[in-house]
């Protein structure tokens, strides 16, 4: 991947972030998906913090404050409660945290496969796109000229011609 960063987090921050990621997107057997705290996905998150590193560190500091100083020490229910308070604050910091997690979670091969999608880059194969129903345009084609010019016409009362001057 491009834009990989040096991890840039302390050991404690890494632990908190992995635990937080698992709360943000938990594993779910019903959907056949791992959580965002999965080791492979979390390693990708750490590598890819890039421009969001400082925002993520700010978010983790907020989380520690919400946890009374030690997020790691909280039991499962208390940790989830603190995380949801953090994530409920809609600002640039929490959005950057969300981006750091989502951009890696939704490019993981297993997650993509569970969504029924192909785990590949768009290029070079591209995708098929149906033409769609162009007959629908016939309902519009015959409308009167709509555009205006200095002659003041084009307000829907024109002559219906598309314009003799057009090229």
């Amino acid at each position: 991947m491009r834009e990989e960063s040096e991890v840039g987090l302390t050991e404690a921050e890494r632990y908190d972030l992995q635990r937080l990621a698992g709360i943000m997107i938990p594993a779910d057997a019903a959907y056949g998906v791992v959580g965002a705290d999965d080791d492979l996905i979390f390693a990708d998150i750490l590598r890819s913090l890039g421009r969001d590193l400082e925002a993520v560190r700010t978010a983790l500091a907020r989380l520690r404050d919400l946890a009374g100083g030690d997020f790691a020490a909280l039991d499962e229910a208390a940790a989830e409660s603190a995380a949801m308070v953090l994530l409920g604050k809609q600002d640039a910091v929490t959005f950057a945290l969300g981006r750091a997690v989502l951009q890696c979670y939704y490019r993981d091969d297993r997650v993509i496969a569970a969504l029924g999608l192909e785990a590949r880059a768009p290029f070079p194969r591209g995708y098929e796109l149906p033409q769609g129903d162009f007959s629908l345009v016939e309902a519009v084609r015959g409308r009167a000229r709509m555009w205006r010019d200095l002659d003041g016409t084009g307000d829907g009362t024109g002559d219906g011609a598309t314009d003799a001057k057009g090229g």
């Binding site: 796109l129 149906p130 033409q131 769609g132 129903d133 162009f134 629908l136 345009v137 309902a139 519009v140 084609r141 015959g142 409308r143 009167a144 000229r145 709509m146 555009w147 598309t162 314009d163 001057k165 057009g166 090229g167």
Partner: peptide
């Protein structure tokens, strides 16, 4: 070509497909 909302002109290539999304938009707008 043929849009009544703009002066007549003929783009050199056919339009991009409407696809599923464009078809749904077109039906609604009609």
């Amino acid at each position: 070509a043929g849009d009544p909302a703009v002066p007549a002109h003929t783009p050199p290539m056919p339009p991009v497909p409407l696809g599923r999304t464009g078809t749904r938009y077109a039906q609604a707008t009609n």
